[in-house]
Computed example of a mutant assay.
Amino acid sequence: MHPFHLFAVAVAHRLPGTWTTIRHRYPRPADQSVDLCRIWTPSEDRPSPAGRERAATLRRADGLALYLAEHRQRRVLICPVVPLGLHEDITDRLRAPPSVAAPLDPARAAWRITDRVLPRYTAAVSDARAAARALTFQRAHRSLPRRAPAPHARTR
């Protein structure tokens, strides 16, 4: 296993809860686009993990996921991922959780994630899920247009 992927596994073991590690290797930069499109950051602050050969996704059972990409020398870029089931129509309206850079030291990277990313990420996901439920409720209970009453037949 590549050292970067070993690093990602070590970070996952240091995070609160149970996280699984999904390794990515991109022979071509275009292969990375499927994973990059799910990164949840404001467009004006969008980090640039594109063009890296290796990355990893750390995923928790409740749907939270973090995308880790090789950054500058001896650094890793940690980006929150839009959880499956949430659409950009919802997440684009909310304040996005931060992406951070951390040293390639599993203990320090896990501390950065635990201290700086997870609290805001969990709050943002909770807000997004509440907004999605409210939107679903609103759509389900939207009043349908009323039909005009049928004319009564007069009897003589």
Score class of each variant (00 low, 15 high):
residue 23 R to K: 13
residue 133 R to C: 12
residue 120 R to C: 05
residue 92 D to E: 10
residue 141 H to M: 11
residue 14 R to D: 06
residue 76 V to I: 10
residue 153 A to H: 15
residue 85 G to P: 06
residue 78 I to M: 02
residue 58 L to A: 08
residue 151 P to L: 12
residue 33 S to P: 02
residue 66 L to E: 06
residue 147 R to K: 10
residue 119 P to D: 04
residue 155 T to P: 08
residue 97 P to W: 06
residue 11 V to L: 07
residue 33 S to W: 06
residue 39 I to F: 06
residue 71 H to K: 10
residue 52 R to C: 05
residue 128 A to S: 00
residue 147 R to F: 05
residue 13 H to N: 15
residue 130 A to Q: 11
residue 67 Y to L: 05
residue 150 A to D: 12
residue 38 R to A: 05
residue 58 L to R: 07
residue 147 R to G: 09
residue 149 P to G: 12
residue 90 I to D: 00
residue 123 A to R: 15
residue 100 V to A: 05
residue 57 T to G: 04
residue 96 A to T: 05
residue 104 L to A: 12
residue 40 W to S: 04
residue 24 H to C: 01
residue 82 V to Y: 03
residue 95 R to A: 15
residue 48 S to H: 10
residue 89 D to N: 11
residue 124 A to F: 04
residue 41 T to A: 07
residue 143 S to Y: 04
residue 154 R to G: 13
residue 17 G to T: 08
residue 124 A to C: 07
residue 56 A to C: 11
residue 87 H to W: 06
residue 77 L to E: 00
residue 18 T to E: 07
residue 37 C to R: 14
residue 13 H to P: 04
residue 2 H to M: 11
residue 64 L to A: 07
residue 121 Y to A: 02
residue 23 R to H: 15
residue 18 T to G: 01
residue 24 H to W: 04
residue 84 L to T: 03
residue 11 V to P: 00
residue 17 G to H: 06
residue 38 R to K: 11
residue 54 R to Q: 11
residue 126 S to H: 11
residue 105 D to E: 14
residue 140 A to K: 12
residue 20 T to C: 01
residue 51 G to R: 08
residue 141 H to Q: 12
residue 144 L to D: 11
residue 35 D to E: 14
residue 133 R to D: 15
residue 48 S to A: 14
residue 141 H to D: 08
residue 52 R to K: 14
residue 6 L to T: 13
residue 6 L to G: 14
residue 147 R to A: 13
residue 97 P to T: 02
residue 80 P to C: 03
residue 14 R to P: 06
residue 79 C to L: 00
residue 38 R to N: 04
residue 154 R to A: 13
residue 54 R to L: 08
residue 79 C to A: 05
residue 87 H to L: 02
residue 119 P to K: 02
residue 52 R to H: 08
residue 75 R to H: 09
residue 108 R to F: 05
residue 51 G to S: 09
residue 53 E to K: 09
residue 49 P to Q: 01
residue 71 H to V: 01
residue 44 E to L: 10
residue 67 Y to W: 09
residue 112 R to I: 00
residue 139 R to M: 14
residue 21 T to R: 03
residue 118 L to R: 01
residue 116 R to M: 13
residue 40 W to R: 05
residue 135 L to M: 14
residue 10 A to K: 03
residue 47 P to V: 02
residue 70 E to S: 05
residue 128 A to M: 03
residue 47 P to H: 05
residue 126 S to F: 02
residue 35 D to M: 05
residue 150 A to H: 09
residue 26 Y to F: 15
residue 151 P to R: 14
residue 112 R to H: 10
residue 138 Q to M: 12
residue 64 L to W: 05
residue 156 R to L: 15
residue 92 D to G: 12
residue 36 L to Q: 03
residue 62 D to A: 07
residue 66 L to K: 01
residue 31 D to L: 03
residue 144 L to W: 10
residue 134 A to V: 09
residue 69 A to P: 03
residue 142 R to H: 13
residue 136 T to K: 09
residue 16 P to Y: 01
residue 105 D to F: 00
residue 155 T to S: 15
residue 95 R to D: 14
residue 101 A to P: 02
residue 136 T to Q: 09
residue 18 T to V: 13
residue 103 P to I: 09
residue 87 H to R: 10
residue 100 V to L: 10
residue 35 D to F: 00
residue 122 T to H: 06
residue 116 R to S: 13
residue 120 R to Q: 12
residue 3 P to A: 09
residue 115 D to W: 08
residue 102 A to H: 03
residue 148 A to K: 15
residue 83 P to I: 04
residue 40 W to E: 00
residue 33 S to Y: 08
residue 8 A to Y: 00
residue 114 T to D: 11
residue 75 R to L: 11
